[in-house]
């Protein structure tokens, strides 16, 4: 069910005049988190762009309860908050709002442990595909081929699929989301928060200065990632893995837009040759085939 735009809460959980860069994709996501869970969430935020965008104390640019915590600790801190709330009888949802580096790299052991324990935490990884806060260094979520300041000729290794790794932990809910589809993200947050246990959402969030595109194109880039098949919207719930629109209509490769429409918007891919782009396209299709086989396997029992 898509939520009608005019029925979304109007409270400003992202407060104007904060420290985010113009056109920050992550802030669109944070806004949606506020709309969906603003009165229930308590956030654990590790070192990241998300800690900086809050602006300068004693003001805060994010109107949510937030504990800023060390880089690798967010999932564990959220576990502690969640257990405290349970023991003290406080109704609320411990939420981690962490970047890709804090999740897939330095914080990964803690994320994996929280998932394995099935701690009652909603973990949202906003993925801007590099260490943006420190100035665009490569992370394990940087896609193959992308320029960063530490991969000046393009990253040679593939992007780590954290959502599938988390799914393999046997947690009750895993989904991907994209800031170009806020209502889909809103619905997924709402659904996840109904479930007790560990929930993981991988949120695709383009970064204008890091990906080298004009800030007006943030949503366009995010949308093109889905339309070209680079980023697949899916949801694992109740033991079933299914694709969400519009990805669900893009199973047939011919319905996807040419990859170059996504790549050409971003300076980080400007150096790629036609051969490299062709190879990327093949790899994207392999990713689709893998996910579809997974979806086939993860179907509800009759």
């Amino acid at each position: 069910m898509t939520v009608r735009i005019d029925l979304l809460p109007k409270t400003k959980y992202v407060v104007p005049g904060n420290s985010a860069c113009a056109g920050c994709g992550m802030m669109i996501g944070l806004k949606v988190l506020g709309m969906a869970l603003g009165e229930e969430a308590v956030l654990s935020i590790p070192a990241s762009c998300a800690s900086v965008v809050q602006g300068l104390g004693p003001k805060s640019g994010v109107a949510l309860p937030i504990l800023n915590v060390p880089f690798a600790s967010a999932a564990s801190v959220a576990t502690g908050m969640s257990e405290a709330f349970r023991q003290l009888g406080v109704k609320g949802q411990a939420v981690v709002w962490a970047g890709d580096g804090g999740t897939a790299d330095i914080g990964f052991a803690a994320v994996s442990a929280a998932a394995e324990r099935n701690s009652d935490v909603l973990y949202i990884m906003y993925d801007n595909e590099a260490y943006m806060n420190t100035g665009i260094q490569r992370s394990s979520e940087t896609p193959k081929g992308a320029w960063t300041t530490t991969t000046p000729t393009g990253k040679r290794e593939a992007k780590k699929d954290v959502a599938l790794i988390l799914l393999a932990h046997g947690v009750p809910y895993v989904a991907t989301a994209n800031i170009a589809y806020p209502q889909d993200f809103y619905r997924k947050i709402k659904r996840a928060s109904e479930i007790r246990g560990f929930k993981f959402i991988h949120l695709f969030a383009p970064c204008p200065p890091g990906w080298l595109f004009d800030p007006s194109l943030t949503v366009e880039v995010a949308r093109k990632a889905v339309e070209t098949g680079v980023f697949i919207l899916w949801e694992y719930d109740n033991g079933e893995l299914k694709l969400n629109p519009p990805s669900s209509a893009l199973v047939d490769k011919s319905r996807r837009k040419p990859l170059v429409e996504y790549l050409k918007l971003q300076g980080r891919y400007a150096h790629l040759s036609e051969d490299q782009i062709k190879q990327m396209e093949e790899e994207i299709d392999r990713k689709w085939q893998f996910l579809l086989r997974f979806a086939q396997a993860a179907r509800p029992r009759a």
């Binding site: 603003g38 104390g57 994010v62 949510l64 937030i66 609320g92």
Partner: peptide
């Protein structure tokens, strides 16, 4: 630190 009570600890001064 409670839901619905926006207070932040640890942002940049």
């Amino acid at each position: 630190l409670r839901p619905g009570e926006p207070i932040t600890m640890g942002n940049i001064p």
